[in-house]
Design a binder for these strands. Sequence first.
RNA 1: GGACGAUUAGCUCAGUUGGUUAGAGCAUACGAUUCACAUUCGUAAGGUCACUGGUUCGAAUCCAGUAUCGUCCACCA
Length: 726
Amino acid sequence: MQDKFLKPYNSQETESKIYKLWEDSGFFNPDNLPPRHKEKYSIMLPPPNVTGILHMGHALTLTIEDIMIRYQRMRGKKTLWVPGTDHAAIATQSRVEKDIKKKEDKSRYDLGREELLKRIGVFVKQSHDTIISQSKVMGASLDWSREAFTMDEKRNLAVRTVFKKMYDDGLIYRGFRIVNWDPKGQTTISDEEIVYEERPAKFYTFKYSKDFPISISTTRPETKVGDTAVAVHPDDTRYQKYIGKEYDTVFCGVKIHIKIIADESVDKEFGTGALGVTPAHSMIDWEIGEKNKLPVVQVIDEKARMMVGGENIFGKKVAEAREIIVEWLKSEGLLEKEEEIKQNVSTAERTGGIIEPLPKLQWFVAVNKSFNIERSNIKGVQSGQETTLKELMENAVKNGQINVIPDYVNKTYFHWIHTLRDWCISRQIWYGHRIPVWYKDKEIYCGIEAPKESGWTQDEDTLDTWFSSGLWTFSTLGWPEKTKDLSFYHPTDVLESGYDLIFFWIARMILMSTYVLGDIPFKHVYFHGMVRNPKGQKISKSLGDNIDPVDISKKFGTDALRMALVIGNTPGTDTRWSDDKVKAYKNFANKIWNITRFILESTKEEKYIPNFDNFSDADKKLIDERNNFVADITKDMEEFRFYMAGEKIYHYAWHTFADIILEDSKKVFVTENADETSKTSRKQFLLSTLRTILIILHPFMPFITEEIWQSINEDKSILMIEKWPI
RNA sequence: GGACGAUUAGCUCAGUUGGUUAGAGCAUACGAUUCACAUUCGUAAGGUCACUGGUUCGAAUCCAGUAUCGUCCACCA
């Protein structure tokens, strides 16, 4: 027996050494696996944003996926797990901009496009390296030889190719429409990037002028200088006589022309039952305006300042203009009511800026537009059939081709698809994939490469970061090239992530894969719960309760950390972080260590005999129990119940094997009248059961199990690719 | 406003889809132990499975309703 077993298990000394052993073996790369690994099994790691360091959520993803991969590898699958990072356009750029603002008091416009991108490049490199080393600490058996980045050359080619294809199919269009404008980040954002904050607000009721017949209500009087209509419900008897009439009036010094229109969407009961329509600055008003062909008058600019009116309001920020206009309403005697209400304010997820809806010329993906799909493996959609992106997204899940765990989440998914609007994909930031469109006079050219002749200027905008993330399952495998990897490993087997990414990412991957390849991107979606702080709150930078997985690993060992993350974490349900839990699993690691020590001490010269069959009746019974136990664990693993398998292994190893069987063995070994046959039988049973425990525990606690395996086996076998029992 | 989820031991959570006496970890109490264990082992205490009704031979589990908490979506202007 080696001396190290005389001391408690030391994770720090072990882990980096073992990780190196695995890396050197080459078995992270499926190409190097022995011939018994035939059937493919693939997972694409959700690429972490290159905005900083990994947190517990990433640690959890790495753990669960590593468990899946290690299990399948031991079962004989040819396992591919691809790592990568996401350029996270807005998140990364705003992060770097903030740093520069703080340190040098300069804006991106002071630096210019080229210089800013250079600075971002440096930041991204650092962030990337940190992320990689953290992932290795977690024990992740990722194939580093296939690492990808959402903005490297291959992925950029994939992005341009898809853009062109969608453009040619008429699914990407450029349109003048109302968009979510973030005045702080100076860019548009998608509907999904909005977060709502509840704030108190005032709800004002007033008339535009003394001679105007109808009162209206709003929380934003400053936008009313851009009104072009008042809408009432067609059945509203109070206002029917005005429908169709037009009025010229002056509102706070600004001439406005108002048409009274009838629209079903107006709620008779709300406010005065009459709605001042501002097509340029409200999503709903824009839609009413489109239906009724109303003129669009923009009164607020990109910096959220007033762009009309006299000195009193011109150039003022919207909040200031609001107060000034309310004062004006009061002084004119036009204000009829002022109520305190709660309002949901839309803010930009990344910058916190208050969203200003603005009409702008932008690029969109049309989700409801029909096109002919060339080739389809999607159930319910035939090759050559006319379909829409929405239909593809719906069918892939509806017909069970993609299995969602937990299954109730697909209700949320369908609901989201149902309300989905065209996706605004152009961003006015500099870090990201440049839109592959060029302009020359009134001509437009969309291509994978720039046009050869001179005189063309490329579109200034970049793409929503999720456009490239949406291609992740196949862009990582080399698409648009027809690679062997692509045909062998796609569709992938599992997509595992937090449920917060369902719309941003999961849905977009389904959209892209079904559209581009006519195939699903993955067979199963596994949503883990979010890791929360001990009080059950979301862990956030603002609370300052970030926990670095690397610190925990140093203190308790990665194996303990992994167990603490997985056990008790059921799909879709959040879990609370607690150091006590990790401590308990650190003790468990030590227990496994001591079990080994005891067995080595009590078997001594007895060597493990692989196909030993001269077991005593008592041991035969224990073997039956053990086999049942392993079968049970295997079933749990197959059915994605890792949280349960982990706990059962813990329980079997500690409270059945150690507490009962090892205690009982002491009697067997000590009793003088016990015959040699039953002693040998018991020794062989202990040696083989230790091996079994190491194997099935390996996906969960890879380091300590491999370390022990290396110590008890004289052949140079590696536990990571050992055969799973059964 | 809509959808979804949760409610089980002091705390954090399981309960594999209807089947004996409802489980684990941590915490608690008592005892043992230097004989593998920077301890560990044993024993105990602790539950009206949110509430009300229903289906069933049988319900923590299925159905209907109520309450509380949480998440997501919509955004009433």
